[in-house]
Nucleic acid binder design. Structure first.
Lengths: 107, 107
DNA sequence: TATGTAAATAACAATATAGTTATATGGTTT
DNA sequence: AAACCATATAACTATATTGTTATTTACATA
C-alpha cells in the first residue's frame, strides 16, 4: 500500500475515541445514539468520528429506519496490519543514494 | 494495549514521511544526513520525525562518532499489528448500556 | 584550540484536528 | 400535515501537527 494512503488510514485509527468505537463494534453493530452515552462528547462529535472511520473504510453503515447502524470492516483492519509488516521495499532508493555518494560509511 | 497508548503510537506511524523512513530502515540503518537528501524537507524536520519515531519506540538510535544511526524496532511494529487485531474487549461496557436501557432494538 | 560536520532544539507560521453549539436533513408516527 | 427522533452538516474555537530558519550541542580533526 502507498505511504500516503496507509498514513491516511492510520490517521483515522490514531485516536482513542475512534479505537474504542471500533472495539465496541467488534462486539456488535451500534448506532450513533448508542455510542453517545459511552463517551463524554457530543452527538455531532461522535458522528464525525464514525464518518472519519467510514471514509477510511474501517466501518460500514446501514440505515435501519431512523437509525444508522455502523459495523466494523475487519478485513480493512487486517489489511492495515498486513501493510505495516509489508511496507514498500525501498532498497532501490538506497542504492541510488550510494551511487550519488550520499551514503555514510563509518566502520 | 490501552487505547490512549495505541493511539499515540499510531499517530507516530500516521505520516507518509515517517512510514517511508521506517521502510528505509528496514533495508538498513541510516543516519539523519542520509535521510535528508531522500526527502524534500529540511534536516531539522527529518530530525523531528525520527525523534517522534523514537519516542514511540519504533526506532532505536546508536551514536557512531559524529553520526547517529537509527534502526527499526521490528518487534514494536509487530506489536501494533497485534494490538490492532486484539483491541480491548468492551462487551462488558455494552452490557451495562443494555442494563441502563440505552441500547436500540429495531428488528 | 579553532574549524567543520552532524544532529538537536528554539521560535515561529500555516494547516489539520477535534471539540463545541446551532441548524438542517431524513425518516417515523400521531 | 405536524411533531418527533436520529443523524449530519455548518460555523466556529482551541489545540496539535508539520514545516520553516536560526541557533546550539556533540563530536572529529587540522
Amino acid at each position: 500500500m502507498e505511504f500516503e494512503k496507509l498514513a491516511d488510514i492510520l490517521k483515522a485509527l490514531a485516536d482513542p475515541t475512534r479505537l474504542k468505537i471500533l472495539s465496541l463494534l467488534r462486539t456488535r453493530d451500534c448506532c450513533v445514539c448508542e455510542l453517545v452515552p459511552i463517551f463524554n462528547i457530543s452527538q455531532p462529535a461522535i458522528s464525525k468520528h464514525v464518518s472519519r472511520l467510514k471514509t477510511a473504510e474501517l466501518v460500514r453503515e446501514t440505515r435501519k429506519g431512523q437509525w444508522v447502524f455502523y459495523s466494523i470492516n475487519e478485513k480493512r483492519l487486517d489489511e492495515i496490519g498486513y501493510a505495516l509488516s509489508n511496507l514498500p521495499d525501498l532498497s532501490e532508493e538506497l542504492r541510488k543514494l550510494e551511487q550519488q555518494g550520499l551514503t555514510v560509511r563509518c566502520e
